[in-house]
Design a protein around this nucleic acid. Sequence first.
DNA 1: GCCAACGTTGGC
DNA 2: GCCAACGTTGGC
Length: 153
Amino acid sequence: MSRRCWLFKSEPDCYSFDDLVRDGVSPWEGVRNYTSRNHMSSMKLGDLGFFYHSSCEVPGIAGTCEVVREAYADGTQFDVKSEYFDPKATLENPRWFMVDLKPIAKFKKYVPLAQLREAAGLEEMIVAKRGNRLSITPVTEAEWEIVLALGAK
DNA sequence: GCCAACGTTGGC
DNA sequence: GCCAACGTTGGC
């Protein structure tokens, strides 16, 4: 069984790849979209991820990470003081889940969104498509290899 | 700060 | 269960 590849989107002002490097391991909390949640629920230990910076000066991929804990209930949904609080979630029936990530490596060279859009073989990469808003998207093995090469230059 | 895209909500 | 209205995301 081979590892699957994913892309995780984060606003660097909120949580950047360097923050993940600093923390070592971090729960990917706050996902409140069903498609992204379902993607997380299907993740397995050892699955790989790109760490994408969105809503910033130069959006793009900063590095790679790995799933080190499979989906479990996101505690922030029960916390009335959290911006991620969900009144419809109960301890017995959580609606939202998260995985834990750890960094693998920072890219030698940051790969901006514009470069993803130009690169041969990435035409179908979801994050590069217009109007995409999903915070977690699947990445094919071919796409993984191409982006990895771009980041290693 | 604009606006296109699209997910979610809620009335019917 | 349809669909219009609304809210959010995120590139530009």
